[in-house]
Design a protein around this nucleic acid. Structure first.
Lengths: 280, 280
DNA sequence: ACTTTACTTTATACTAACTATAAGGTGTAT
DNA sequence: ATACACCTTATAGTTAGTATAAAGTAAAGT
């Protein structure tokens, strides 16, 4: 360790022992947060006193609690002890909020990875499978026309509406990517493509009114790599049911398995799973 | 809701339905992240297709997971599906680290508030009290000279060394503000001010080797609003012990109760509590 | 057709808390 | 005397936008 002259630390020494950069110290000087003890009028060299480390410590401590330099300057300049406590309390609430936000994001990333793996291991496009699917909870959102009467572009408008709805009702955006549409059992039985609802899958810990439960059971499914094909594939699924003499036992669901990164800007690029509950 | 021409959304409409600002869309255009579908050569007006909402969604989704715009541009441009999963995994670890950091800061703020309250309710400077104090854990750090032989300015140098030590050993900076110095029992019994160790109080959940346990017991204490007075007040405490015929039962501790915001840049401004365990 | 209003364009500057660089002056050791 | 480490200021870059100005355009009302 270099020998230090305790009352005349150069900017470099001050920076080194406090683990900040010289530029940072110059910035603090210019901002009036920490002025050097002494400045040589001729050369402009800054000289700090070792005692100023305490001040710098305080700055770093306040900074570590998420305060801005302006706030710090204000607090240090004012010196109101009671006020300082309030600032700390406020900081505490702020941190709480931030941690919650990050945790939500983390949940979203985790679910995204799961979806991704589901996509990678999913049967190829166009294949009809019979699967046992566990019970799920969904939140339905009504639209004022038949989804299948419209051009596929209208899908975007519906999504926008749903997003606004979620925003307005302060619902968590977490579930957003697990969206789908539903055809109620009577229409399925009539072989009629009629849907005026879209839905979101809901996590168990995400509580909300108006949640519907989709029971576990056997489903015939078909996977599909573009929502332009949905209509066609749904008809295939219904044909399969008729051909095999199955009985429809509930609502049809079109579930988005994965929304893929859109590489070309030409529209949604998704892998969807069309499913109808049946019994033999 | 205004009527929208699905294939020719102006920048304002596009901004509104996606809840971003027009400037943001212009920025994305300039950065090449999201180019409008069509630009009028004469007027320069940007026109977006409703299908581009999907692209914007993806951008916001990736952003919500903490990716920078540059990363997003790279990912969208490259279109590597497997790579995307890795990016998500990386993001997950990154978020974990950030959450941990925030929690640590939160702990620090909480302790700071407690210290503050302790300070506000503490007896005034110079008063000698007798207190029962609970058991505590400390981490000691040796220095190579007698603390009391030095000018008080050397305290700063010791703190710097301690900070470096903590940093080098990857210890949590959490405990930093609860620092103090210790005089071992034999020296106290000899009424000699000799200390070559400083210590940090350690939370229960902060595990580490070389932790010492300071037992619970009765202490005579004196509070002190400046470390310039420590020597003097320690002598007063020893006099008090002699005068009342008490027996010293352990090490002397000088504990920093609160490090106050340093309002003037003239040095540390702290409230300390000097304490010696005794029996009658 | 004319005006008003709402909307669009570009360019520039600002935010926060630094970091990086250039061009030039200073301190000290050999 | 000179090499080298260090210091100075000034300027620009970073991120992901926001704010503003000055000027051009579209649409609606009259």
């Amino acid at each position: 360790m270099e020998p230090l002259e305790i009352e005349k630390l150069t900017i470099g020494q001050m920076a080194r022992i406090n683990h900040v950069s010289e530029q940072t110290l110059r910035l603090y000087d210019r901002m009036g947060i920490l002025k050097p003890n002494d400045i040589n009028k001729q050369t402009g060299y800054r000289y700090y006193s070792i005692r100023q480390c305490a001040h710098l410590d305080m700055i770093q401590y306040m900074k570590s609690m998420g305060m801005s330099l302006d706030m710090i300057k204000e607090q240090l300049g004012k010196g109101d002890v009671i006020m300082f406590r309030e600032v700390l309390q406020h900081q505490l609430r702020h941190l709480d909020k931030k941690i919650k936000e990050l945790k939500q994001i983390q949940e979203a990333v985790k679910r995204s990875i799961i979806n991704y793996d589901r996509y990678l291991s999913a049967p190829p496009d166009g294949i009809i499978t019979t699967e046992f699917i566990h019970g799920r909870k969904i939140y339905c959102y009504s639209i004022d026309f038949n989804f299948y009467d419209q051009e596929i572009e209208v899908y975007e408008l519906i999504l926008q509406k749903l997003k606004s709805h979620i925003r307005l009702n302060n619902l968590s955006m977490n579930a957003y990517y697990n969206v789908g549409n539903i055809i109620r059992k009577p229409y399925v039985e009539e072989r009629k493509l009629y849907s005026d609802e879209i839905f979101l899958f809901i996590n168990d810990d995400f509580f909300l009114e108006d949640i519907e439960f989709i029971p576990a059971g056997l489903y015939v499914c078909i996977y599909c790599d573009s929502n332009y094909k949905e209509r066609d594939y749904t008809l295939r699924l219904l044909e399969y049911i008729d051909h095999n003499g199955l009985t429809v036992t509930g609502d049809y669901l079109c579930e988005v398995v994965a929304e893929l990164p859109v590489f070309k800007e030409s529209g949604r690029n998704m892998y969807i799973k069309l499913q109808i509950p049946v019994k033999y």
